[in-house]
Computed example of a mutant assay.
Amino acid sequence: MATDSVVHQLAIRAGNRLRDERLMLATAESCTGGMVATAITDISGSSGWFERGFVTYSNQAKIEMIGVPSDLIDKHGAVSEPVARAMVEGALRNSRAQVALSITGVAGPGGGTESKPVGMVCFGWSNRLHTVVETLVFKGDRERVRVQAATHALRGLLILLDERER
């Protein structure tokens, strides 16, 4: 799939901000499978502000690649704010980036439960000093949930960058 135009435009805006502030970004993505990293690396010159992306789709990848504690996954499930927090903080620990975002969710069509329905996505954003997590439930098919998650993650990154200026 070609990168969604809204995701692409948000990636450009985030990249301009990161470049201007001389910051590097790391991503930790699960249900989006690297969609944010793809949108970023579609932009010429993104190596100047994108340090690395982790696609940690399986629980084992979350544990091995970015250090999410297995007991956290056992206790809360991979789709949870504690895991989103551990993912974003792990992306920072395992990179040279100053800011990061994480995404973990249930894109569907299967895999949902009553407490974690299809479309539920948990996000994390961090600048090494401050971490924010949030959960939203999106409507639509698998692709639409993934695009909405990538869009929201980039919007949250822009908010995090705005807060740095205050």
Rank of each mutant, 00 (worst) to 15 (best):
G33P: 03
S47V: 04
G124W: 04
Q148E: 09
T32Y: 15
A86P: 00
H76G: 10
V36D: 13
G90L: 11
G108S: 06
G112S: 07
V121G: 02
E51T: 06
T38Q: 12
P82W: 14
E143P: 01
V99A: 08
E114R: 02
R19T: 04
A91I: 12
A100R: 08
A37L: 06
D141Q: 13
L101C: 06
A150W: 05
D42F: 04
A61C: 12
L72G: 07
T113E: 04
V106R: 08
T104H: 07
T104W: 09
E89Q: 13
N59V: 10
V68F: 09
G90V: 03
V147I: 08
T41N: 08
V121K: 04
W49A: 14
F138A: 11
C122I: 05
S30F: 12
G45N: 07
Y57A: 11
V121E: 01
S95I: 08
G124F: 08
V147M: 06
V36M: 11
T27E: 10
T113W: 08
R144Y: 04
P109T: 09
S102L: 05
S58L: 05
D42N: 14
Q60D: 15
V99W: 10
D141Y: 05
R142K: 12
H76L: 10
Q98K: 15
L25G: 00
R17W: 06
V68W: 06
I43D: 05
